[in-house]
């Protein structure tokens, strides 16, 4: 057969494929700037995001307040800048928690066939609820706090991640190199950590970039209906929630944080699409 075929062209390394992927680079630029803003919030925010100024309530955008002020006269731009910190933090924590639990649950289900049926039926049951409703219900029961918002979102999105992780593990588990590892006497833990995890990671990373985006959106929803992190802490959702009663007189209060959400989510989704394209083996051209 054809094992001796010299590769016609060495496969392009992943980073190079990503660099050449235009929408990935655009997404990375968008999301990267949001991250930069969040990191430098204390330096670049022109005002204190919590400082009331009742002399300039619902103020239109002007030289001092570029994006206007809200009902307490707080600077909208500064609140968005600081809010991005909180929103990204929540998104990131949801991603980390979901990744860990999703990978563990999905990994166990995919690797140990006996656990598969039980675990995945539970996950299916959780996924039978519309995601955002489940998150709202959990958050409402737990009460409004940043930690609870993360918990609610993580519980909601873990089954989805577990499903992706399980599918990846099912594929990797059947690879001959896993059998080779068993043949040299490697135990389950070693096989899972050194062979299955690294090789099953790529679809998980793609999925997590989408989860990040969804979590930021969902946090906004939770905050908007008052079960997210409590005010006066600024998050994208909180700012919009604050402004909803004044949407006629002061549309900027809702508009700009909405835009910030859109930029963040768009950036993350483009990153996810780019990763998916770059990692998808079906895209590779086989010249033989």
């Amino acid at each position: 057969m054809t094992a001796e075929a010299p590769a016609i062209a060495a496969p392009t390394p992943l980073w190079r494929r990503l660099l050449n992927h235009r929408s990935f680079m655009f997404g990375l630029t968008l999301f990267g700037s949001v991250v930069l803003v969040a990191l430098l919030a204390d330096l670049i925010a022109p005002h204190d995001p919590l400082k009331n100024n009742f002399r300039y309530r619902l103020g239109e955008p002007n030289d001092i307040h570029w994006l206007g002020t809200d009902r307490a006269g707080r600077d909208v731009l500064s609140r968005i800048i600081h809010g991005s910190q909180v929103s990204l933090r929540i998104g990131l924590m949801v991603v980390v928690v979901t990744a860990v639990f999703g990978a563990v649950i999905g990994g166990l289900a995919g690797y140990f066939r006996k656990l598969d049926n039980v675990i995945m039926r539970v996950m299916d049951a959780m996924m039978a609820f519309p995601g955002i409703l489940l998150a709202i219900a959990i958050a409402a029961v737990l009460g409004p706090s940043e930690f609870n918002a993360v918990l609610a979102l993580a519980i909601t999105y873990t089954p989805r991640t577990a499903r992706v992780a399980r599918a990846a593990v099912l594929v990797v588990r059947e690879m001959p190199y896993v059998e080779a590892a068993r043949a040299v006497g490697a135990g389950h833990m070693r096989i899972l950590l050194t062979h299955v995890l690294p090789n099953g990671l790529t679809p998980l990373i793609v999925q997590l970039s989408y989860i990040f985006a969804i979590a930021i959106l969902a946090e906004a929803v939770l905050s908007f209906i008052g079960v997210g992190p409590p005010p006066p802490l600024a998050t994208f959702g909180n700012i919009i929630a604050d402004g909803r009663d004044y949407i006629q007189e002061a549309p900027w209060i809702c508009l700009y944080p909405g835009l910030a959400i859109a930029i963040t989510v768009l950036g993350l989704n483009l990153i996810g699409d780019g990763l998916r394209d770059a990692l998808d083996p079906r895209m590779k051209v086989d010249l033989r």
């Binding site: 094992a3 190199y177 059998e179 080779a180 006497g185 050194t194 090789n199």
Partner: peptide, 29 residues
């Protein structure tokens, strides 16, 4: 007791270096 596999492409973990692959039995034991 060891085994040599048919598939020279699938039986080596693509994410490991050759050194790690060959050393794996030593590490495991």
């Amino acid at each position: 007791m060891q085994i040599i596999f048919q598939d020279p492409f699938g039986s080596l973990d693509p994410r490991m270096t050759v050194g790690r692959i060959v050393a794996e039995p030593l590490v495991v034991h």
